[in-house]
Design a protein around this nucleic acid. Structure first.
Length: 567
RNA sequence: UGAGGCGUCGCCAAGCGGUAAGGCACCGGGUUUUGGUCUCGGCAUCCCAAGGUUCGAAUCCUUGCGCCUCAGCCA
């Protein structure tokens, strides 16, 4: 079956890009070299869509014994900042990828790029144009009508060379002149209608400072950066498909030694969130969220703070595949990947989020005993811990029903349940306040059921979690839900903005959550499963005297589902 | 009658002329000191549509239909 598979490192499922690479390897197209790159523009934080691209590019390199560079496409100083180049590196590393010594910047190539431009001018393939931005738009034509040639299109090579050098030395004002490729003003590919290659812009660049006042455009800098680095597969998203003829034109006319091949794939869309940098930036700057790393954001930084693991994201990237059809992946798949990973790894701990007091009437006053609790039933090696048990405990309000619904097998008057790892407990009575709210549940325990089982074969269907009141750690818990109420936030009524679909309940802060004392020794970033509730991690907002937990994702809840149905 | 892409289960996605993989979601059974996990079973006679070629087509051809992208001196 794998007889055509030349490479033994290949993992996971195949896709059309791997097919192309395999074919090239077979025909020795690039002398067996596989070189990719991840080329972000440092103008924002990376998001889960970038993660797909990162996993793809670094993954291809790993599978085919190649290399993947990290290159910042920093050709527009007015939008780019060092904060972003730092965060991007942190995020790629966190995802688990290593560019070793191959960290590059398009700005590293400005001098070479300039020389390539000079070569194009000398070949009569580029010219300096005086048209204003407005005029250029007019000359460009429309989608259906061809454009017309610039009156500056036929300047002599000498004049173009002179003008281009003067552009560089700052003799013209911003926007006064551009360098354009001389291609075809009637092309169906609008990008081929004499595209701008260089513009004049006096903005301090985050790396080159004020050394340059002309900056190359993406369509010029990107293909040549790829060529300079010897990239074999320049993988990008579908919207650049229209730019491919220009990509090839630039590489060919510049007579680059290496001729990379651009391959486009469909970018990731995730339900109940947005992926556009513009929108994410707006959510941050207008304070709809607390920052780029708000746990509700689809940014790598947000997802990380939320408690996701890099493994789960890589698994997700593998499962969604790589193709060319537009897609909208169900966020439930991402959550599934996370639960699967955390189920195997997370330390279990008992925490009561919506507490109600339980008093064990027949338990000695002031006595505290310690019961043994398994840290992770999926992994014996994670060992056991001791949990304090006493007369006064907290349990989840939803684990008691004075009048049990059909099918409900948790605590209710007269019913017996297991307090996990502790004892069988039976409810005997309930205290209510003046308005009828339950204040205290009185129970009895059966001393012979220590550990949570009995020899008499008594069957106890329900098992609930609890926390001993006196020793409980009090914490704040942040419960998150989808940032948007619609699967596709861009599904809008007439005149609406995507922000109309923001979920007002995406963050619910719960104070006074009681957690077993075991969590005391842990630190920000540590992950847990709160028994029967969900996966949580300690947030960086935690301090000496206050724990803050983020709910990463809840556990699946088939009872909640049926309960909702009958409600 | 501008150009370039894409259309396989609710959502992703294999398939590359030999008679529809897999995952998620969903539904149902079993196990269970998490109504979690695990486990068993169900879930496209059909591949945008209609013609055609072929012994045989989701895969080839034709013609339609639908959706996406492109008119920044952004990337």
């Amino acid at each position: 079956m794998n007889e055509n598979n030349i490479n033994e490192n290949e993992t996971g499922k195949s896709n059309f890009i791997k097919d192309i690479i395999r074919e090239d390897l077979k025909t020795n197209k690039n002398d067996g070299v596989v070189a990719t790159r991840f080329p972000p523009e440092p103008n924002g934080y990376l998001h889960i869509g970038h993660a797909k691209s990162i996993c793809l590019n670094f993954g291809l390199a790993a599978e085919f014994s190649g290399t993947c560079n990290l290159r910042f496409d920093d050709t527009n100083p007015s939008k780019e900042e060092t904060e972003y180049v730092d965060s991007i590196q942190e995020d790629v590393r966190w995802l688990g990828f290593d560019w070793e010594d191959r960290l590059f910047y398009a700005s590293d190539y400005y001098e070479q790029l300039f020389d390539f431009a000079v070569l194009l001018i000398k070949k009569g393939k580029a010219y300096v144009c005086d048209l204003t931005a407005d005029q250029m738009r007019e000359y460009r034509g429309t989608l259906k009508l061809p454009g017309k040639e610039s009156p500056f299109r036929n300047r002599s090579v000498e004049e173009n060379l002179d003008l281009f050098n003067k552009m560089r030395s700052g003799e013209f004002k911003d926007g006064e002149k551009t360098l354009r490729g001389k291609i075809d003003m009637s092309s169906g590919y609008i990008v081929m209608r004499d595209p701008v290659l260089y513009r004049i812009q006096r903005t301090t660049h985050h790396r080159t400072g004020d050394a340059w006042c002309i900056y190359p455009m993406y369509d010029f800098a990107h293909p040549l950066s790829d060529a300079i680095e010897g990239i074999t597969y320049s993988v990008c998203t579908l919207e650049f498909e229209n730019n491919r003829p220009l990509y090839d034109w630039v590489v060919n006319e510049a007579e680059a030694a290496h001729k990379p091949r651009q391959i486009e794939f469909a970018r990731l869309n995730l339900s109940y969130t947005v992926m556009s940098k513009r929108k994410l930036l707006e959510l941050v700057t207008k304070n709809y969220v607390s920052g780029w790393d708000d746990p509700r954001m689809p940014t790598i930084a947000g997802i990380r703070r939320r408690g996701y693991t890099p493994e789960s994201i890589r698994d997700f990237a593998e499962r969604i595949g790589v193709a060319k059809a537009d897609n909208m992946v169900d966020i439930a798949l991402l959550e599934h990947c996370l639960r699967e990973d955390l189920n195997k790894k997370a330390q279990r701990v008992m925490a009561v989020i919506d507490p109600v007091k339980v008093i064990i009437d027949n338990y000695p006053d002031g006595q505290v005993e310690y019961v043994e609790a398994v840290n992770n039933p999926e992994d014996e090696n994670m060992g056991k811990r001791e949990m304090p048990f006493s007369k006064e405990l907290w349990i989840e309000r939803s684990d008691f029903m004075e009048v049990p619904a059909k099918g409900y097998f948790r605590l209710s008057p007269g019913a017996e349940v297991r307090f996990k790892h502790a004892y069988y407990i039976k409810c005997v009575s309930v205290d209510k306040d003046s308005s009828g709210n339950i204040e205290t549940i009185h129970c009895t325990y059966d001393p012979v059921t220590r550990g949570g089982w009995s020899e008499d074969g008594r069957k106890v269907k329900g098992t609930i979690h609890w926390v001993s009141a006196a020793q409980a750690v009090t914490a704040e818990v942040r419960l998150y839900e989808h940032l948007f109420i619609k699967e596709n936030p861009d599904d809008l009524a007439e005149g609406e903005d995507y922000k109309a679909n923001l979920n007002e309940d995406s963050l619910k802060i719960v104070e006074n959550v009681f957690i077993e004392p075991f969590v005391k020794d842990f630190k920000a970033g540590d992950r847990f499963q709160f028994d029967r509730t969900g996966y949580f991690c300690i947030d960086k907002d935690s301090s000496e005297d206050k724990f803050v937990f983020n709910r990463t994702v809840s556990l699946k809840d088939s009872w909640g589902k049926t309960a909702n149905k009958s409600a």
